[in-house]
Design a protein around this nucleic acid. Structure first.
Lengths: 245, 245
DNA sequence: CGCCACTTTGACTGGGATCAATCGCTGTGG
DNA sequence: CCACAGCGATTGATCCCAGTCAAAGTGGCG
């Protein structure tokens, strides 16, 4: 059995009991490898499984009938994906591998069983779901009420903050395996305009970008520009029910 | 004891057992009345309670330091609000009463107890949380990748769809107690531009608006314009654990 | 070595912002 | 019953951020 990324993620939030740990690890079995570009599923598919990212990046996206694309969220190691398709059966967005990745799939029922056996984990999953909503809300504010430069700054900072939460280390150099087109589709700008903004931000000594490597040269300046709020505090588990066993 | 809006809402999704029903109704006690404009709580407050909307409209909003406002979501009868503040303690957004409203508050702990006693309700709450994420994703796509007219059309349609889900009736006349400024803050436009767009849409016989009353004159045209997806299907509860009692 | 995906740059256009008045309704107090 | 205040809606003039179209540059890889 290999190390469970999901356990690694969740135990940052909560001191897991052995049986909780086992239940979570049980969801992350039978890893499969997908090359970059693989479409894990497509908007509208009837999805009955959830996935946990072991390694690599995925992104969820939707397309308008005009062909325009909006990237909704990025998924890293330890993230559970597919939960958004759990309410209705149809996947509301497509999931695409941005890099080569390793993923474990498990059926929905397993989540139900976990909820029944471990109410504290149910509360934890609920909280994580709420964190996702907060993340989406922050993106919404960014798209609705700030200009292109601030949106990009926000994107870089939020990716950096999430990576930091995964790896535990604070590094101004962030690997962001996205093209300028991808960046644009994430923040609602065109590729051409993203290019110009990146050049401007480079001139202003805010960032540096070289292929997939982005360096946050002046992080304080970026935070100020983006009015970024790093919400990665500790999770409040005070209301959780007691753990089973 | 008065009728629980929360029970009314949830039983649309799931055939509730008597004890589940009781647990839910228990969360909706001691209703309080707030006049329109009341700030129920402010961004950053340490919130330890959740609320259920009994009557009226609330909206959640954030402000940038520049003073600009982004409306994130609307809350109607039967909605639970405050869940987004449950992960961390600080409320990520303010909640403001858009009309006079009746609201019930309950402590977070009660949610934890419900999770422990009724795993099936935990699964239901999780699903509802995911529906919220989907709603936010749809708004994100709208703001990121469509023009002002489509954004407004989308807003009107999604409010109409949600109202319909609450009231059960399909009526082209929708009461939307928002000013043009509010509409702009919801879709990322200025009040002035909202005004012009509404005039245009009226000329094109798509809608009619008079104060708080919006009429969807050509609903098909709006759906087409907004590329709107009405996701209000039935909830998939096939993966839920069995009900207790 | 040549293709292909990505980036860079320029010229022009347009949707929506900004600034600034004016209008109209409604509630309130003299 | 009227005057006035205040909020929201309407409208015009002007500006600018970002989109569009188009072409050339760069670098990795088969």
């Amino acid at each position: 059995m290999f190390d469970s990324c999901f356990v690694a993620r969740l135990k940052r939030y909560l001191d897991l009991t052995p049986s909780e740990r086992e239940a979570i690890a049980g969801l992350e079995r039978d890893p499969k490898i997908y090359p970059a570009g693989t479409v894990l599923w497509t908007e509208g598919d009837d999805v009955t499984e959830l996935m946990i990212v072991h390694q690599g990046w995925a992104l969820s996206e939707t397309r308008l009938t005009s062909g325009r694309r909006q990237i909704l969220r990025f998924h890293f190691s330890g993230d559970m994906i597919g939960a958004s398709g759990i309410a209705f059966r149809d996947a509301p967005s497509s999931i695409v591998a941005a890099t080569d990745m390793t993923v474990c799939r498990f059926p929905r029922q397993a989540l139900g069983e976990t909820f029944a056996a471990h109410p504290r984990l149910a509360a934890l999953f609920f909280s994580i779901s709420q964190m996702e909503s907060i993340d989406l809300s922050d993106r919404l504010r960014s798209l609705g009420r700030s200009d292109g430069k601030a949106r990009l700054a926000n994107l870089f900072l939020s990716i950096s903050a999430r990576m930091r939460a995964v790896t535990g280390e604070h590094n101004p150099v962030v690997r962001i395996p996205l093209t300028q087109t991808d960046l644009g589709d994430a923040v609602g700008l065109t590729q051409v305009h993203v290019n110009r903004l990146i050049r401007q931000m480079t001139e202003e000594k805010l960032i540096t970008r070289n292929r997939a490597t982005v360096t946050l040269v002046d992080e304080a300046g970026l935070v100020d520009l983006a009015r970024f709020i790093d919400r990665f505090g500790t999770l409040d588990s005070s209301w959780f029910p007691p753990a089973n066993t």
